[in-house]
């Protein structure tokens, strides 16, 4: 049981928990968080992949990939949160005033 094994197991657990959350939680915010968990799991695996075995050269490509992945994850999360906020806002409002003008198209 090396440290890599620990990393891999926890990464897979993160991925699995995230996936479970995405599929079974009904609240949108939880779904968004779950997707983030999944992403973290994948990034963790990537980092482990760059470790290199037994002192061989460290592979930096996965690290660069993780950086790219994080930025993408931030971007998607931000968009998802905005959408979720908008939806929630509408729901709140439509609870107040049920009659809403019919939108076209």
């Amino acid at each position: 049981m090396t440290i890599t094994t620990g990393y891999i197991i926890s990464a897979l657990l993160l991925f699995g928990i995230g996936m479970n959350g995405l599929m079974t939680c009904s609240h949108q915010l939880r779904k968004i968080l779950a997707v983030n968990l999944m992403a973290s799991g994948v990034f963790l695996i990537l980092i482990v992949t760059g470790f290199g075995t037994d002192g061989s050269a460290i592979d930096h490509v996965p690290h660069a990939m993780v950086l790219t992945g994080i930025v993408i994850s931030v971007s998607t999360t931000a968009l998802a949160l905005t959408l979720a906020c908008r939806i929630q806002q509408r729901l709140n409002r439509s609870a107040d005033e049920t009659a809403e003008g019919n939108d076209d198209d």
Binding site: V71, I72, V74, S75, T76, A78, L79, T82
Partner: peptide
Amino acid sequence: VLFLAGLGI
């Protein structure tokens, strides 16, 4: 992608 997120929002 980051720009796109800003644009999307």
